[in-house]
Design a protein around this nucleic acid. Structure first.
Lengths: 136, 136
DNA sequence: TCATCTGTAATTTTTAATATTACAGTACAA
DNA sequence: TTGTACTGTAATATTAAAAATTACAGATGA
């Protein structure tokens, strides 16, 4: 699997911790310890959902797109999500087998139910809540 | 991510659908459409949890290790789980950054909470329930 | 008009997942 | 007691996905 969700939360947490400032992709990448291009790519996605604002040019950078209290972690999950949490097998079950023929559909339903319960859980936690866990 | 959970459920569903019979890894692999060695490997894991019985030798094969009503999908999830559902980033956040230093712990806590809610959800569904969705 | 940033495409490298090969060990049955 | 058909498992190769890197155009402020 991949660490997109963690990276997204890390970015948002940094922006939340330094309100008013514009942080650069290089600074953010330094804290996460990944490549700056990956940061810009992930932000480019989060921006579509209004979670982050960006400013181009010299002295440009990133800031939160809305108050941290308004950002539920479920919003981040939905913005980032490419695959169901249960994973996704890449095989194509044998359609000549009565089980194989039907199981794809049932597994998908199950994956949807599980994702819904994750979203319900994450709905109860805002970025502000998450940020409060940090001590300085 | 990977398809271990789906594969495990597929195997168990097949065994459940043909009670009394011993199914071979090759037959199972044919339905899932993956390599038989992968089936044997996955079963070798599920067997540790008592979910599957195996018999070696000629006319050997696999069967359920306990009644389908006793197998909750959360048991399968726990048996298969190697990574938290939210994924796992491979970066090591910068310990020189106050956020980077603490975020690993907080993200892990979050991942644990999410996994707990998945397990709660899957606890309510048995293999027997899942098997009932199929029509013949 | 230079320096410093974002935005994004293209490519390479690394890592994880899956498939394959190989073979020892077990059990049944002729 | 020997051949056949399985499981169990290790070792290796292949494929696919994730992440890093390179490169550069466009924006903006000094």
């Amino acid at each position: 699997m991949n660490g997109q969700f963690q990276i997204a939360v890390h970015i948002l947490t940094l922006l939340h911790a330094q309100p008013g400032e514009l942080l650069s992709s290089e600074y953010i990448a330094g804290s996460i310890n990944i490549n700056p291009v990956l940061v810009r790519k992930e932000i480019s996605n989060l921006r579509k959902y209004g979670l982050i604002d960006s400013k181009e040019g010299k002295a440009g950078g990133y800031s939160l797109g809305m108050p941290a209290k308004k950002i539920a972690l479920s919003d981040v999950y939905k913005a980032v999500k490419v695959q169901p949490a249960l994973g996704q097998a890449k095989n194509k079950p044998n359609p000549a087998c009565p089980i194989g023929k039907q199981i794809g559909e049932h597994l998908d339903d199950l994956a949807d139910e599980v994702d819904a319960s994750i979203i319900n859980k994450l709905k109860t936690i805002t970025l502000a809540d998450f940020g409060e866990k940090f001590k300085y």
